[in-house]
Design a protein around this nucleic acid. Structure first.
Lengths: 191, 191
DNA sequence: CGAGTCCCTAACCAAGCGGTCAACAGGCAT
DNA sequence: ATGCCTGTTGACCGCTTGGTTAGGGACTCG
Protein backbone atom coordinates (compact mmCIF):
# COMPACT_ATOMS: atom_id res chain seq x y z
CA UNK A 1 0.00 0.00 0.00
CA UNK A 2 2.69 2.47 0.97
CA UNK A 3 4.74 1.98 -2.17
CA UNK A 4 1.87 1.97 -4.62
CA UNK A 5 0.27 4.99 -2.98
CA UNK A 6 3.51 6.95 -2.89
CA UNK A 7 4.91 6.15 -6.30
CA UNK A 8 2.06 4.81 -8.41
CA UNK A 9 1.62 1.62 -10.35
CA UNK A 10 4.24 1.78 -13.08
CA UNK A 11 6.87 3.37 -10.88
CA UNK A 12 6.66 0.56 -8.34
CA UNK A 13 8.30 -2.77 -9.14
CA UNK A 14 7.40 -6.09 -7.60
CA UNK A 15 10.99 -6.50 -6.46
CA UNK A 16 10.67 -3.30 -4.46
CA UNK A 17 7.42 -4.45 -2.93
CA UNK A 18 9.01 -7.77 -2.01
CA UNK A 19 12.02 -6.08 -0.48
CA UNK A 20 9.87 -3.62 1.48
CA UNK A 21 7.77 -6.50 2.79
CA UNK A 22 10.87 -8.60 3.60
CA UNK A 23 9.49 -11.40 1.51
CA UNK A 24 10.47 -13.14 -1.68
CA UNK A 25 8.98 -11.93 -4.95
CA UNK A 26 7.64 -15.39 -5.68
CA UNK A 27 5.56 -15.32 -2.52
CA UNK A 28 3.70 -12.24 -3.72
CA UNK A 29 2.95 -13.99 -6.98
CA UNK A 30 1.64 -16.95 -5.01
CA UNK A 31 -0.84 -14.73 -3.16
CA UNK A 32 -1.68 -12.48 -6.12
CA UNK A 33 -1.71 -13.83 -9.65
CA UNK A 34 -0.43 -10.64 -11.25
CA UNK A 35 0.85 -7.22 -10.37
CA UNK A 36 -2.51 -5.77 -11.40
CA UNK A 37 -4.32 -8.03 -8.96
CA UNK A 38 -2.17 -6.84 -6.08
CA UNK A 39 -2.71 -3.27 -7.15
CA UNK A 40 -6.48 -3.69 -7.20
CA UNK A 41 -6.37 -5.17 -3.72
CA UNK A 42 -4.38 -2.15 -2.58
CA UNK A 43 -6.89 0.21 -4.20
CA UNK A 44 -9.77 -1.43 -2.37
CA UNK A 45 -8.00 -1.28 0.96
CA UNK A 46 -7.19 2.37 0.49
CA UNK A 47 -10.77 3.11 -0.52
CA UNK A 48 -12.32 1.61 2.63
CA UNK A 49 -12.19 4.70 4.88
CA UNK A 50 -14.11 6.60 2.20
CA UNK A 51 -17.29 4.71 2.93
CA UNK A 52 -18.57 6.37 6.05
CA UNK A 53 -22.07 6.45 7.34
CA UNK A 54 -23.79 9.78 6.87
CA UNK A 55 -27.11 8.51 8.18
CA UNK A 56 -25.95 8.29 11.78
CA UNK A 57 -24.83 11.87 11.56
CA UNK A 58 -28.23 13.23 10.58
CA UNK A 59 -29.74 12.93 14.05
CA UNK A 60 -32.37 15.42 15.04
CA UNK A 61 -30.64 18.39 13.45
CA UNK A 62 -32.48 20.80 11.23
CA UNK A 63 -31.57 21.10 7.57
CA UNK A 64 -29.22 23.99 8.05
CA UNK A 65 -27.20 22.20 10.71
CA UNK A 66 -27.17 19.02 8.66
CA UNK A 67 -25.85 20.90 5.65
CA UNK A 68 -23.14 22.56 7.68
CA UNK A 69 -22.25 19.23 9.26
CA UNK A 70 -22.00 17.60 5.83
CA UNK A 71 -19.73 20.34 4.57
CA UNK A 72 -17.60 20.06 7.66
CA UNK A 73 -17.35 16.28 7.30
CA UNK A 74 -16.20 16.67 3.72
CA UNK A 75 -13.55 19.24 4.48
CA UNK A 76 -12.20 17.52 7.58
CA UNK A 77 -12.02 14.24 5.71
CA UNK A 78 -10.16 15.91 2.87
CA UNK A 79 -7.74 17.56 5.25
CA UNK A 80 -7.04 14.34 7.13
CA UNK A 81 -6.74 12.08 4.10
CA UNK A 82 -4.96 14.37 1.71
CA UNK A 83 -2.27 11.91 0.70
CA UNK A 84 -4.64 9.10 -0.15
CA UNK A 85 -6.94 11.49 -1.98
CA UNK A 86 -3.96 12.74 -3.92
CA UNK A 87 -3.28 9.20 -5.00
CA UNK A 88 -6.87 8.53 -6.06
CA UNK A 89 -7.18 11.77 -7.98
CA UNK A 90 -3.98 10.98 -9.85
CA UNK A 91 -5.31 7.52 -10.53
CA UNK A 92 -8.62 8.83 -11.82
CA UNK A 93 -6.90 11.38 -13.99
CA UNK A 94 -4.78 8.70 -15.48
CA UNK A 95 -7.14 6.17 -16.94
CA UNK A 96 -9.89 8.11 -18.69
CA UNK A 97 -11.97 5.01 -19.46
CA UNK A 98 -15.15 5.09 -17.35
CA UNK A 99 -15.40 1.29 -17.16
CA UNK A 100 -12.54 1.15 -14.74
CA UNK A 101 -14.20 -0.06 -11.56
CA UNK A 102 -12.32 2.38 -9.39
CA UNK A 103 -13.78 5.25 -11.36
CA UNK A 104 -17.22 3.79 -10.89
CA UNK A 105 -16.81 3.38 -7.16
CA UNK A 106 -15.60 6.92 -6.72
CA UNK A 107 -18.33 8.36 -8.91
CA UNK A 108 -20.92 6.43 -6.94
CA UNK A 109 -19.54 7.81 -3.69
CA UNK A 110 -19.58 11.26 -5.20
CA UNK A 111 -23.13 11.01 -6.48
CA UNK A 112 -24.29 9.83 -3.08
CA UNK A 113 -22.86 12.93 -1.52
CA UNK A 114 -24.35 15.13 -4.23
CA UNK A 115 -27.88 13.75 -3.90
CA UNK A 116 -27.62 14.20 -0.14
CA UNK A 117 -26.77 17.83 -0.76
CA UNK A 118 -29.52 18.35 -3.32
CA UNK A 119 -32.05 16.86 -0.95
CA UNK A 120 -30.96 18.92 2.03
CA UNK A 121 -30.83 22.15 0.07
CA UNK A 122 -34.27 21.52 -1.37
CA UNK A 123 -35.75 20.92 2.06
CA UNK A 124 -33.95 23.91 3.53
CA UNK A 125 -35.34 26.12 0.78
CA UNK A 126 -38.88 24.89 1.46
CA UNK A 127 -38.49 25.81 5.10
CA UNK A 128 -37.17 29.25 4.14
CA UNK A 129 -33.92 28.41 5.90
CA UNK A 130 -31.87 28.94 2.77
CA UNK A 131 -31.21 32.35 1.36
CA UNK A 132 -29.90 30.87 -1.87
CA UNK A 133 -32.79 30.58 -4.29
CA UNK A 134 -31.17 28.73 -7.16
CA UNK A 135 -32.55 25.31 -8.10
CA UNK A 136 -31.26 22.73 -5.60
CA UNK A 137 -29.35 20.80 -8.26
CA UNK A 138 -27.58 23.94 -9.41
CA UNK A 139 -26.83 25.07 -5.87
CA UNK A 140 -25.52 21.62 -4.95
CA UNK A 141 -23.27 21.54 -8.02
CA UNK A 142 -21.97 24.93 -7.13
CA UNK A 143 -21.33 23.91 -3.55
CA UNK A 144 -19.66 20.70 -4.63
CA UNK A 145 -17.44 22.53 -7.09
CA UNK A 146 -16.48 24.86 -4.28
CA UNK A 147 -15.60 21.95 -2.01
CA UNK A 148 -13.56 20.35 -4.78
CA UNK A 149 -11.74 23.59 -5.28
CA UNK A 150 -10.80 23.63 -1.60
CA UNK A 151 -9.74 20.00 -2.03
CA UNK A 152 -7.33 21.05 -4.76
CA UNK A 153 -6.00 23.67 -2.41
CA UNK A 154 -5.27 20.99 0.16
CA UNK A 155 -3.63 18.78 -2.46
CA UNK A 156 -1.34 21.43 -3.84
CA UNK A 157 -0.58 23.86 -1.07
CA UNK A 158 -1.11 21.57 1.89
CA UNK A 159 -2.97 22.16 5.13
CA UNK A 160 -1.75 25.68 5.63
CA UNK A 161 -2.55 27.02 2.18
CA UNK A 162 -6.30 26.81 2.81
CA UNK A 163 -8.33 29.05 5.11
CA UNK A 164 -10.93 26.54 6.22
CA UNK A 165 -12.73 28.80 8.63
CA UNK A 166 -12.86 31.63 6.13
CA UNK A 167 -14.19 29.34 3.43
CA UNK A 168 -16.88 27.96 5.70
CA UNK A 169 -17.87 31.46 6.75
CA UNK A 170 -18.30 32.41 3.10
CA UNK A 171 -20.28 29.30 2.35
CA UNK A 172 -22.59 30.11 5.31
CA UNK A 173 -23.01 33.59 3.97
CA UNK A 174 -23.83 32.33 0.50
CA UNK A 175 -26.19 29.55 1.59
CA UNK A 176 -27.92 31.13 4.55
CA UNK A 177 -27.04 34.78 4.48
CA UNK A 178 -25.16 34.46 7.78
CA UNK A 179 -23.12 37.53 8.52
CA UNK A 180 -19.39 37.41 7.79
CA UNK A 181 -17.84 35.57 10.68
CA UNK A 182 -16.91 37.37 13.83
CA UNK A 183 -15.22 35.03 16.26
CA UNK A 184 -17.99 32.72 17.41
CA UNK A 185 -18.02 29.35 19.11
CA UNK A 186 -20.32 27.46 16.77
CA UNK A 187 -17.48 26.37 14.53
CA UNK A 188 -16.58 22.94 15.89
CA UNK A 189 -13.10 22.49 17.30
CA UNK A 190 -12.33 19.82 14.69
CA UNK A 191 -11.53 22.64 12.32
CA UNK B 1 4.34 15.35 -26.93
CA UNK B 2 1.34 13.21 -27.78
CA UNK B 3 2.68 10.08 -26.14
CA UNK B 4 4.00 11.73 -23.00
CA UNK B 5 0.83 13.76 -22.56
CA UNK B 6 -1.42 10.77 -23.10
CA UNK B 7 0.36 8.15 -21.10
CA UNK B 8 2.78 9.93 -18.79
CA UNK B 9 6.51 9.65 -18.27
CA UNK B 10 7.04 6.15 -16.94
CA UNK B 11 4.39 4.58 -19.12
CA UNK B 12 6.03 5.88 -22.29
CA UNK B 13 9.15 4.16 -23.56
CA UNK B 14 11.74 5.69 -25.82
CA UNK B 15 11.20 2.87 -28.30
CA UNK B 16 7.56 3.87 -28.59
CA UNK B 17 8.51 7.49 -29.08
CA UNK B 18 10.98 6.50 -31.77
CA UNK B 19 8.42 4.32 -33.52
CA UNK B 20 5.73 7.00 -33.34
CA UNK B 21 8.18 9.52 -34.78
CA UNK B 22 9.37 7.06 -37.47
CA UNK B 23 12.90 7.58 -36.30
CA UNK B 24 15.58 5.45 -34.72
CA UNK B 25 15.86 5.48 -30.97
CA UNK B 26 19.50 6.50 -31.21
CA UNK B 27 18.52 9.67 -33.03
CA UNK B 28 16.41 10.80 -30.11
CA UNK B 29 19.35 10.21 -27.79
CA UNK B 30 21.49 12.27 -30.11
CA UNK B 31 19.12 15.24 -29.83
CA UNK B 32 18.29 14.75 -26.13
CA UNK B 33 20.84 13.39 -23.72
CA UNK B 34 18.36 11.47 -21.58
CA UNK B 35 14.70 10.58 -21.46
CA UNK B 36 14.23 13.20 -18.76
CA UNK B 37 15.64 15.92 -21.00
CA UNK B 38 13.18 15.07 -23.75
CA UNK B 39 10.39 15.05 -21.21
CA UNK B 40 11.31 18.48 -19.91
CA UNK B 41 11.33 19.83 -23.44
CA UNK B 42 7.87 18.39 -23.94
CA UNK B 43 6.65 19.95 -20.68
CA UNK B 44 7.86 23.37 -21.76
CA UNK B 45 6.24 23.09 -25.16
CA UNK B 46 2.94 22.05 -23.61
CA UNK B 47 3.13 24.89 -21.11
CA UNK B 48 3.49 27.63 -23.75
CA UNK B 49 -0.19 28.29 -24.43
CA UNK B 50 -0.71 28.90 -20.73
CA UNK B 51 1.13 32.18 -20.86
CA UNK B 52 -1.44 34.52 -22.30
CA UNK B 53 -1.61 38.24 -22.03
CA UNK B 54 -4.28 39.51 -19.68
CA UNK B 55 -3.20 43.12 -20.02
CA UNK B 56 -4.49 43.49 -23.54
CA UNK B 57 -7.83 42.21 -22.37
CA UNK B 58 -8.31 44.88 -19.72
CA UNK B 59 -9.16 47.67 -22.16
CA UNK B 60 -11.55 50.37 -21.02
CA UNK B 61 -13.85 48.01 -19.15
CA UNK B 62 -15.01 48.73 -15.64
CA UNK B 63 -13.98 46.43 -12.81
CA UNK B 64 -17.11 44.34 -12.95
CA UNK B 65 -16.73 43.64 -16.65
CA UNK B 66 -13.03 42.93 -16.20
CA UNK B 67 -13.76 40.44 -13.44
CA UNK B 68 -16.37 38.69 -15.51
CA UNK B 69 -14.04 38.65 -18.50
CA UNK B 70 -11.26 37.13 -16.37
CA UNK B 71 -13.58 34.44 -15.09
CA UNK B 72 -14.75 33.70 -18.59
CA UNK B 73 -11.17 33.50 -19.88
CA UNK B 74 -10.31 31.01 -17.18
CA UNK B 75 -13.28 28.77 -17.80
CA UNK B 76 -13.04 28.84 -21.59
CA UNK B 77 -9.34 28.08 -21.39
CA UNK B 78 -10.01 25.18 -19.07
CA UNK B 79 -12.71 23.82 -21.32
CA UNK B 80 -10.56 24.07 -24.44
CA UNK B 81 -7.37 22.69 -22.92
CA UNK B 82 -8.81 20.02 -20.69
CA UNK B 83 -6.51 17.25 -21.87
CA UNK B 84 -3.31 19.21 -21.39
CA UNK B 85 -4.53 20.49 -18.02
CA UNK B 86 -5.32 16.93 -17.02
CA UNK B 87 -1.74 16.02 -17.81
CA UNK B 88 -0.27 18.90 -15.83
CA UNK B 89 -2.47 18.30 -12.81
CA UNK B 90 -1.44 14.65 -12.79
CA UNK B 91 2.16 15.74 -13.10
CA UNK B 92 1.86 18.20 -10.23
CA UNK B 93 0.12 15.65 -8.06
CA UNK B 94 2.87 13.21 -8.72
CA UNK B 95 6.04 14.88 -7.62
CA UNK B 96 5.26 16.67 -4.37
CA UNK B 97 8.68 18.32 -4.12
CA UNK B 98 8.23 22.08 -4.62
CA UNK B 99 11.66 22.53 -6.19
CA UNK B 100 10.49 20.93 -9.37
CA UNK B 101 10.59 23.79 -11.82
CA UNK B 102 7.31 22.81 -13.40
CA UNK B 103 5.61 23.25 -10.06
CA UNK B 104 7.18 26.65 -9.72
CA UNK B 105 6.10 27.79 -13.16
CA UNK B 106 2.53 26.70 -12.58
CA UNK B 107 2.38 28.27 -9.13
CA UNK B 108 3.73 31.52 -10.54
CA UNK B 109 1.04 31.49 -13.24
CA UNK B 110 -1.53 30.77 -10.59
CA UNK B 111 -0.38 33.54 -8.27
CA UNK B 112 -0.45 36.01 -11.14
CA UNK B 113 -4.07 35.21 -11.76
CA UNK B 114 -4.86 35.39 -8.04
CA UNK B 115 -3.31 38.82 -7.53
CA UNK B 116 -5.19 40.06 -10.58
CA UNK B 117 -8.39 38.88 -8.94
CA UNK B 118 -7.55 40.37 -5.55
CA UNK B 119 -6.79 43.70 -7.17
CA UNK B 120 -9.95 43.79 -9.27
CA UNK B 121 -12.18 42.72 -6.39
CA UNK B 122 -10.65 45.36 -4.14
CA UNK B 123 -11.24 48.10 -6.68
CA UNK B 124 -14.76 46.89 -7.41
CA UNK B 125 -15.55 46.99 -3.70
CA UNK B 126 -14.27 50.55 -3.41
CA UNK B 127 -16.56 51.61 -6.23
CA UNK B 128 -19.48 49.85 -4.56
CA UNK B 129 -19.76 47.59 -7.61
CA UNK B 130 -19.31 44.45 -5.57
CA UNK B 131 -21.99 43.12 -3.29
CA UNK B 132 -19.55 40.72 -1.70
CA UNK B 133 -18.03 42.43 1.33
CA UNK B 134 -15.43 39.89 2.37
CA UNK B 135 -11.77 40.93 2.34
CA UNK B 136 -10.52 40.86 -1.26
CA UNK B 137 -7.97 38.13 -0.52
CA UNK B 138 -10.61 35.91 1.00
CA UNK B 139 -13.09 36.58 -1.78
CA UNK B 140 -10.43 35.91 -4.41
CA UNK B 141 -9.45 32.64 -2.75
CA UNK B 142 -13.07 31.64 -2.63
CA UNK B 143 -13.56 32.52 -6.27
CA UNK B 144 -10.41 30.70 -7.28
CA UNK B 145 -11.41 27.61 -5.36
CA UNK B 146 -14.73 27.74 -7.14
CA UNK B 147 -13.03 27.96 -10.51
CA UNK B 148 -10.76 25.07 -9.63
CA UNK B 149 -13.77 23.05 -8.61
CA UNK B 150 -15.30 23.66 -12.02
CA UNK B 151 -11.95 22.68 -13.52
CA UNK B 152 -12.16 19.34 -11.74
CA UNK B 153 -15.63 18.93 -13.16
CA UNK B 154 -14.23 19.40 -16.65
CA UNK B 155 -11.43 16.96 -15.97
CA UNK B 156 -13.59 14.18 -14.64
CA UNK B 157 -16.96 14.48 -16.28
CA UNK B 158 -15.92 16.23 -19.45
CA UNK B 159 -17.46 19.21 -21.22
CA UNK B 160 -21.03 18.12 -20.71
CA UNK B 161 -20.84 17.44 -16.98
CA UNK B 162 -20.46 21.13 -16.16
CA UNK B 163 -23.12 23.79 -16.42
CA UNK B 164 -20.93 26.72 -17.37
CA UNK B 165 -23.72 29.24 -17.80
CA UNK B 166 -25.33 28.24 -14.53
CA UNK B 167 -22.05 28.49 -12.68
CA UNK B 168 -21.33 31.92 -14.11
CA UNK B 169 -24.81 33.08 -13.20
CA UNK B 170 -24.25 31.98 -9.64
CA UNK B 171 -20.88 33.65 -9.48
CA UNK B 172 -22.47 36.90 -10.76
CA UNK B 173 -25.10 36.58 -8.10
CA UNK B 174 -22.53 36.04 -5.40
CA UNK B 175 -20.11 38.75 -6.51
CA UNK B 176 -22.48 41.45 -7.70
CA UNK B 177 -25.93 40.44 -6.52
CA UNK B 178 -27.09 40.03 -10.13
CA UNK B 179 -30.45 38.31 -10.32
CA UNK B 180 -30.49 34.61 -11.16
CA UNK B 181 -30.05 34.39 -14.89
CA UNK B 182 -33.05 34.51 -17.16
CA UNK B 183 -32.05 34.02 -20.79
CA UNK B 184 -30.09 37.15 -21.61
CA UNK B 185 -27.62 38.01 -24.32
CA UNK B 186 -24.75 39.36 -22.25
CA UNK B 187 -23.17 35.95 -21.88
CA UNK B 188 -20.63 35.87 -24.68
CA UNK B 189 -21.17 33.24 -27.39
CA UNK B 190 -17.82 31.66 -26.57
CA UNK B 191 -19.58 29.84 -23.75
C1' DC C 1 39.79 16.11 -53.76
C1' DG C 2 39.87 15.54 -48.64
C1' DA C 3 38.73 16.79 -43.94
C1' DG C 4 35.17 17.94 -40.87
C1' DT C 5 30.60 18.44 -39.14
C1' DC C 6 25.90 17.26 -38.80
C1' DC C 7 22.15 13.66 -38.82
C1' DC C 8 20.94 9.34 -38.60
C1' DT C 9 20.85 4.08 -38.11
C1' DA C 10 21.47 -1.03 -36.92
C1' DA C 11 23.30 -3.54 -33.61
C1' DC C 12 24.39 -3.94 -29.21
C1' DC C 13 24.64 -3.62 -23.85
C1' DA C 14 23.77 -4.28 -18.83
C1' DA C 15 20.11 -3.96 -15.84
C1' DG C 16 15.68 -4.55 -14.43
C1' DC C 17 11.10 -6.08 -15.40
C1' DG C 18 6.87 -9.32 -14.51
C1' DG C 19 6.38 -13.89 -13.92
C1' DT C 20 7.56 -19.17 -13.39
C1' DC C 21 9.38 -23.33 -11.35
C1' DA C 22 11.29 -26.98 -8.64
C1' DA C 23 12.23 -27.66 -4.14
C1' DC C 24 11.24 -27.67 0.51
C1' DA C 25 9.58 -26.79 5.40
C1' DG C 26 5.93 -27.38 8.63
C1' DG C 27 1.32 -28.69 10.28
C1' DC C 28 -2.30 -32.07 10.07
C1' DA C 29 -5.24 -35.82 9.12
C1' DT C 30 -5.00 -40.60 7.95
C1' DA D 1 5.48 -43.01 9.17
C1' DT D 2 2.87 -41.35 5.10
C1' DG D 3 0.93 -38.28 2.09
C1' DC D 4 -1.11 -33.86 1.40
C1' DC D 5 -1.96 -29.09 1.53
C1' DT D 6 -0.36 -24.36 2.55
C1' DG D 7 3.43 -21.13 2.43
C1' DT D 8 7.87 -19.80 1.18
C1' DT D 9 12.20 -19.56 -1.25
C1' DG D 10 16.33 -18.85 -4.66
C1' DA D 11 17.27 -19.47 -9.11
C1' DC D 12 15.82 -18.73 -13.39
C1' DC D 13 13.37 -17.07 -18.03
C1' DG D 14 12.22 -14.19 -21.90
C1' DC D 15 11.64 -9.67 -22.74
C1' DT D 16 11.91 -4.64 -22.51
C1' DT D 17 14.12 -0.79 -20.70
C1' DG D 18 17.22 3.51 -21.05
C1' DG D 19 21.31 4.24 -23.11
C1' DT D 20 25.82 3.43 -26.17
C1' DT D 21 28.73 2.65 -30.04
C1' DA D 22 30.65 2.20 -34.51
C1' DG D 23 29.82 3.56 -38.70
C1' DG D 24 27.79 5.70 -42.86
C1' DG D 25 25.57 9.13 -45.97
C1' DA D 26 25.12 14.20 -47.13
C1' DC D 27 26.64 18.54 -47.01
C1' DT D 28 30.15 22.35 -46.57
C1' DC D 29 34.56 24.52 -46.54
C1' DG D 30 39.32 25.05 -48.09
Amino acid sequence: MRLFAMRGFHETSMSEVARAASVSKALIFWHFKTKEELFMAVLNRLLEPYFIDFAEEAGALDEKSQLLRLIELYLVFVRDNASSIRFFVAQLLHDEKPSDGLTNQVLQLYDGYRTLLVDLIGRAQEKQLCKCDFPPQAAASFLLAMLNGLLMGFLFTGDKGVDLKGAIAMLRNWLFGDAPQRESDDIPPSL
